[in-house]
Amino acid sequence: MGLWLCCQYFIFRFTFLPSVIRTVILRTFGASVGSGVLIRRGVRVHIPWNLEIGDDCWIGEEVWFINHEKITIGSNVCISQRSIICSGGHDYRSASLEYAHKPVVIKDGAWVCLDAKVLPGVTIGECSVVSAGEIVRKSLPDYSMLVGGQVRQIDPPK
């Protein structure tokens, strides 16, 4: 873990580092990263071996994966700038705030827009959209959009 933290803060997040090198670094530390994945500058990954990214995904600037449990991202997914995908949490009912980690799944074709937050235990459905600034507390069904705190169905692609 210490080696990963040093690598992340001194190499991985650098602006000039090409995306292909970021994917190689993540794979070296145990992440599963598909082909055609673009990882922009400033991305943070808490535990790389708990991260799985499918093919042809776009991970925007300053995205943060807080992945105490596995975060699984399908193919053709866009996670926009400054979004946080978090699989770690605490049980607020516990006096010692025991861990309450739950995995997160983002299915194929989903889009997590600018500055959105996805919380532990959530599944984002296939081709679903999380609008900018939203906080996802409950799973979204396939072909839906979270906007203004409300879930709306959207038409599947033709």
Rank of each mutant, 00 (worst) to 15 (best):
T123F: 03
V118C: 04
I135Q: 15
L119E: 10
C127D: 14
S144H: 01
L119Y: 10
C113W: 07
W111F: 03
V122K: 06
K138G: 01
V122W: 01
K138C: 11
R137W: 00
Y143I: 06
G133E: 01
T123P: 02
V136F: 05
V136L: 03
D142S: 04
S139T: 13
A116Q: 09
S139P: 05
Y143V: 05
C127L: 03
S139D: 07
S144N: 04
D115H: 14
E134T: 12
G133C: 08
A132Q: 15
K117D: 05
L114S: 10
L140G: 02
P120K: 00
Y143E: 03
W111C: 06
S131L: 01
G121K: 13
S131M: 08
Y143H: 07
P141S: 11
W111I: 01
V136N: 09
A132V: 14
I135S: 14
W111V: 15
L114I: 12
V130I: 07
W111A: 02
C127E: 12
S131N: 06
S139N: 06
G125A: 06
G121P: 10
S144F: 03
A132G: 13
G125P: 05
V136G: 09
V118A: 08
I135G: 10
L140W: 01
L140E: 01
I135Y: 11
K117G: 04
S144L: 10
I135A: 14
V122N: 01
D142G: 06
G125C: 11
R137D: 03
W111K: 08
T123W: 03
G121M: 13
S131E: 03
L140T: 07
A116M: 11
E134L: 13
G121F: 13
K138S: 11
V112Y: 06
D115K: 14
P141Y: 09
S128F: 06
T123N: 04
V122Y: 07
I124T: 09
P120H: 01
A132H: 13
E126F: 00
S131I: 03
A116T: 12
L114K: 07
D115G: 10
L119T: 15
S128Y: 05
C127S: 14
V118K: 04
E126C: 13
I124A: 10
P141V: 09
V112G: 08
G121E: 14
V136M: 08
K117S: 12
L140Y: 05
I135H: 14
A132P: 13
G133D: 00
T123E: 09
K117P: 05
P141Q: 12
L114W: 13
E126D: 00
W111H: 00
A132N: 12
I124K: 01
K117T: 11
D115T: 13
D142T: 02
C113D: 12
A132E: 15
V122D: 10
K138V: 05
C127W: 01
V118Y: 02
E134P: 10
S139Q: 07
S139Y: 09
V129S: 05
S139F: 04
W111L: 05
V130Q: 08
T123S: 10
E126G: 00
V118M: 08
K117V: 15
Y143L: 02
S144R: 07
